[in-house]
Write a protein that binds this DNA or RNA. Structure first.
Lengths: 192, 192, 192, 192
DNA sequence: TATGAATGAGATTTCATTCAT
DNA sequence: AATGAATGAAATCTCATTCAT
């Protein structure tokens, strides 16, 4: 059983801190202290703060995509796939171990100004859309969904996921039933 | 014909810069340069950066609320009111003169860390929710809407507004039909 | 009698330190300590280290040019003008109060890598050449000099000034008679 | 056919980089990258950066001296020797393969601050002077030169070489005929 | 000999805020 | 109300050098 490498410690500490404190409030010192490594190792391994931030976001996104794909793979109809997708999305966002907040702050929907190769994040994130488009297309084919454009409907549903998630994890006034209500809202709108 | 006062110039410049560049990238120097006034006037009039940021956000929010209220007041049914609310929300967000982006970065849905009296913004923003709850309640009463809980449905719909808006103004991949699709999506889900 | 302003103190301290320690070894801290002002005032007034360096060099260059022009203006022949020019050049370089070394490190003949608007320094320095070209041209006309091309001869003589000066102020082995020998060398080469 | 040893690759890369970028801008990483060897080999073989810099300079100086000595050895008079010396000096400085710039930045005439055993460089460089003194002495003896002090005249002529060379390789405004003009200037000044 | 991860002191630069005028 | 010089804490990033492998 190997210990985590210092590079990995750094990434883990960064994910937690970027998520909790945001980009600006997270400093090199905080990260290296938390990871228990030297300050300079950060640039040695990751180049600069922005690149580390991106690495954190992509790491979370990778796990996120895995979870979404697993969820849709278990669906027995297009409609079921959409619902599983939405549930998996929302569940992942409140999983304590997922470091979801980093992705919130780093995703294309964030209001942060990044000079970062935002393109990389954009193109990776588009896979989330593709996954949903796929199940919507299936649902239209198998008759479990109303007839809509799959691409634009995916964009609407993901917009709702984004907004609901932000309501829950960022605002102080989300109702306990929010995620359930959201699923009902989606179901009513697209069920055949 | 009075010229704008220096205090007002400052607020206007700040709204534009906070919106365009974000909180961190917007500096006192940039603001005072753009406004064409002395640096020191900023703290003199607004206390500190956070307070100015809040003032910008509240200023936009005020106009936003006015627009929403006018929209709902013209409705001839609850359902119509909801649709008018949503349309007004989305229209305002792409109005060139509304300085919407400041509010995006300052609202409870922002991923920024603020020490600011976030409470003030939260409580002001809750009026947006109340406005929507009101028309939903009316729609349930007048039979134009499905029977749902007005408070939680308002939260879902506003979540969708938030997400759709972010898709449009922050990401590079929003489809041209997004706002229209969103309205259709809402209508399908709640129309009686 | 006003005291020197903080901006002026900064420039004076910088001239001394850049001259004595070189660009790299001169730090913001050393400069602000020596000038007795706050660290941040440096960028406030001069933008950045490079610009301050340039300001130092140009300040010395300005005094240098004044001295050269005065020297040539007193000449009673072209040949005399050239000799006065050379003497003034060399004298200025060992004047304790001239902060000559900054200019050595900042001039077009320096081996430092500068991103600085080197162009500004180059074009200012070309005035030194022009001044010498003028007296050479006069000497050819009045018959006190051999017939040569004034522009290229100026370049040769200034090359000799540059080299002799570096020998004197940078190397440990300059002979005491160097400057005198240089003047003799020039006289032999160009006297009619 | 042996390949260059890693130690030699390192020296070659260092000569090019120190010459092109200067001492400060040249980093261990750049050197090891360019040489295609491990970072740690640098200190392993050369101790530290300063020592490597000196090694580079001395390597170039060695070739330089060889060239100068060959040039003077072919002279058929003292005057001819001086002219050959000067020509060889200037030619070497624009030989693409000589890595001359390292020596410019490392020589006693450089404006860099070095903690390096500057003494070593100084004493090696004095051999350049000695070589010129020798031919000047010969020229006085054989009557091909004016009667001057050989040591101090050597210093003047080398000053001119230094300055002319810097004009050519460091400034943007050297005239094409500069090196030729310099040789003429010297000839006029010392020919018997 | 060879590698490159690891260290941490130190440099430059930014900028909100203060304050004398 | 208005100005902008002045402050200094804090952040990011660099890089020679060390050292375990």
């Amino acid at each position: 059983m190997m210990n985590k490498s210092k590079k990995e410690s750094l990434l883990q500490a960064a994910k937690e801190l970027f998520g909790e404190c945001g980009y600006v409030e997270t400093t090199f010192k905080k990260i290296s202290d938390k990871a228990g490594v030297a300050l300079g190792l950060l640039t040695h391994h990751y180049g600069n703060k922005e690149k580390l931030f991106l690495a954190c976001g992509l790491d979370v996104l990778e796990h996120f995509l895995k979870r979404l794909r697993q969820a849709t793979s278990e669906a027995d109809s297009g409609f079921d796939g959409v619902m599983r997708f939405c549930k998996a999305y929302l569940d992942f966002s409140i999983d304590r171990d997922s470091n979801w907040l980093v992705l919130v702050r780093c995703s294309p929907y964030s209001d942060m100004k990044t000079k970062t190769d935002r393109d990389i994040m954009d193109s990776m994130f588009s896979q989330v859309h593709q996954e949903l488009e796929r199940v919507i297309a299936r649902g239209i084919e198998d008759g479990s969904l109303v007839t809509v454009d799959s691409k634009s409907t995916a964009q609407v549903i993901i917009s709702l996921m984004v907004g609901a998630n932000r309501t829950r994890v960022l605002t102080p006034y989300a109702m306990p039933s929010l995620y359930k209500d959201v699923l009902d809202f989606v179901a009513r709108s697209i069920k055949a």
